[in-house]
Simulated scan of single mutants.
Amino acid sequence: MTSDGPRDLMTASTDAAELLGDAPLSAAEAGYVQAARAANTLRGYRSDWTEFSSWCAEHDHEPLPAAAAAISAYLTTLAGHGAKVGTMSRRLSAIRFAHRLRDLPDPTENARVVAVWEGIRRTHNTRPEQAAPLMPPQLWDVLDACPTTKTWKTPNRPKEPHLAGLRDRALILVGFVAALRRSELVGLDVADLAEHPNGMVIQLSRSKTNQRGDVDELVVLPRGTLPRRCPVAALQTWLEAAHITDGPLFRAVSKGNRALERRLTAGVVNTVVQAAVVRAGLVDEAQAGGYSAHSLRAGFVTYAHARGASDRAIAHQTRHRSLHTVGTYIRVDTAWDDNAATALGL
């Protein structure tokens, strides 16, 4: 057996038949096999499996089926080089997935691997790095810095609506108010929006916590009192300027200031947010990495809490299943709120 099989499956559904047994799969069956995992998950598995396979080749181990000693040594090597616990956990998931594809026993459940992994987690576990929250009043500065008018060096070419600026403005406002994950933002279609007297309702057919789409998740987008801070107005302005009536909601914009058919990728949302905070003067380019698409969701939770919203009300919008998870978003500066230590009179 070679290490290429699982990697190939993660690349194309046509390889599913080869990996899931001797009997070939029909095109429809192969398609469903590919749909069993989210595209981002498969890309991550592919990258992690390639890395593990390369390590095995260098250290004279078979990656499939992998021996417990190989996996424990691999984890020890990663820990020794400073890999994060989250990274190592993802690598284990890729190894587990590759073995299940071949209907092989899961080597990550071996007692040796479990013992080494538990020791690594106790020794090296650290708090996850959190993106800086983006919320008012800094959020208003970021929105105001988004360009709205496109000027040209070409003589006599009239000014036009700055499509990339209008898109970024709508993207940031919707991402903040709707508390959406970046994958959810770029996955939105015009058909997912429904008009409501109070604004709009976004219908998410799938999300990180609802990957099978068992239940439609509804997210509200209330109309703001000020047009320049209203997510509904920003979204409508973008759609009208870009002449978008159906298909992907947030799209790439050409250098010629035209909206393309191609939807944005999740990674581009990070770039949009980082460029926006630099443009607004919040940070310089060297510090922009502290912000990401997650800053919008984190900003919503932190700001809503500061405005008196309950954890349950916040979770209603963020769709967190656990109120404890919502609590992890509340930043250090809120630790002083309603705290008895401030009343000790020391």
Rank of each mutant, 00 (worst) to 15 (best):
8 D>F: 11
18 E>G: 09
23 A>N: 06
25 L>S: 02
33 V>M: 04
35 A>M: 07
50 T>N: 05
51 E>S: 15
59 H>G: 02
67 A>S: 04
72 S>W: 06
76 T>E: 02
78 L>S: 13
84 K>G: 14
91 R>D: 05
96 R>P: 04
97 F>Q: 13
104 L>G: 03
106 D>E: 04
109 E>L: 13
112 R>S: 11
117 W>L: 12
135 M>T: 10
143 L>K: 06
145 A>G: 08
146 C>H: 03
150 K>F: 03
150 K>L: 01
155 P>Y: 04
158 P>H: 05
169 R>L: 05
178 A>R: 07
178 A>V: 09
179 A>P: 00
180 L>K: 03
182 R>S: 15
186 V>G: 10
196 H>G: 03
197 P>A: 06
198 N>V: 09
211 Q>L: 02
211 Q>M: 02
215 V>C: 07
223 R>Y: 12
226 L>A: 11
229 R>Q: 11
231 P>K: 00
232 V>Q: 13
242 A>Y: 01
255 K>W: 12
259 A>E: 02
266 A>S: 15
271 T>V: 14
275 A>V: 08
286 A>D: 10
288 A>L: 02
291 Y>L: 06
300 F>W: 06
303 Y>A: 07
308 G>L: 07
310 S>F: 04
325 T>S: 14
328 T>Q: 11
337 D>L: 15
337 D>T: 14
340 A>M: 07
340 A>N: 14
